[in-house]
């Protein structure tokens, strides 16, 4: 392997892996058991997994069609649309949380109407957690899927069309199977981002054990009181997310042909 590639690659691995090593070295392993059994930890972990999964499903539902529009439509507003999709990527998540308040909060543009008409208030609920996570994580899915769609050979779709398939049938039977690995990779990225989401969640959904306190929030608050507990919780979250991703990779990405 050429040194100009190898050296930076090794540096890159060290840069990404050393903080993880630091975390593992500092982990008070004897505390792992008691921390796992501590009240609220299982609750926070469950809430994290459920809300990240729901956020990923929501993102798939809206994000795949959105990626298709970005990749296939020739409308003039496409560039603007793509810029809008990436807004949550550049927006500090805390600002994203405030922005969600301004739209979906009790005094928000849509939220005040929801409150008046249906008596629905979103902030400080598990729904708010899912919304905040979706807001922050969906762009990751959209960008991956759009990339996959652009890389896919559009001639297959053209052939399907000449054989009489409608656009919806073409999308379902030709396009989707073709970009499935891209969708899977995007969903994994989206899920991982949602699982680690902190800023938008603590702002828009608040922090309450059982309803809105996800693992990252629990870690942050534990850090205020007992850094060792925070490290144990971080390692736990890391372990669970890595295990889930590896499991999925074998079952899902592996089959779809992504190395």
């Amino acid at each position: 392997m050429p040194a100009p590639l190898l050296v930076p690659a090794v540096l890159g691995v060290l840069f990404l892996a050393l903080p993880l090593v630091g975390l593992l070295v500092r982990t008070p392993w004897s505390q792992l058991g008691p921390q796992l059994a501590a009240p609220g930890v299982g609750q926070a972990l469950r809430l994290s997994l459920v809300s990240a999964t729901l956020a990923t499903l929501l993102s798939l539902l809206m994000g795949v069609p959105l990626a298709w529009v970005l990749a296939r439509s020739r409308a003039r507003g496409r560039t603007v649309l793509r810029a809008l999709v990436t807004v949550p990527l550049v927006l500090p998540p805390v600002v994203g949380g405030v922005a969600l308040f301004l739209v979906l909060g009790r005094q928000g543009l849509v939220g005040s109407w929801l409150d008046d008409a249906f008596g629905i208030t979103i902030p400080f609920s598990t729904t708010a957690v899912v919304i905040a996570e979706t807001f922050v994580a969906m762009p990751f899915l959209v960008i991956s899927v759009e990339g996959a769609l652009r890389a896919a050979d559009a001639r297959f779709e053209d052939v399907a069309a000449t054989l009489g398939a409608g656009r919806w049938t073409t999308f379902r039977r030709v396009t989707l199977p073709m970009v499935a690995p891209g969708i899977a990779a995007g969903a994994v990225l989206c899920w991982a981002r949602a699982l680690g989401e902190f800023g938008a969640t603590i702002t828009f959904a608040g922090n309450f054990p059982g309803t809105t306190q996800t693992m990252p929030l629990a870690v942050y608050l534990a850090l205020q009181r007992d850094p060792d507990a925070a490290i144990v919780l971080s390692v736990l979250l890391l372990g669970v997310s890595l295990a889930t991703l590896l499991l999925l990779r074998d079952r899902w990405l592996g089959r779809a042909g992504v190395p």
Partner: peptide, 21 residues
């Protein structure tokens, strides 16, 4: 019976200023 346990006092204040609590 709070709905949220804020990470610092100014975060709690912000939620009052926004009219969300």
């Amino acid at each position: 019976r709070p709905d949220t346990l804020e990470e610092d006092v100014r975060a709690a204040l912000t939620k009052v200023e926004l009219g969300e609590v």
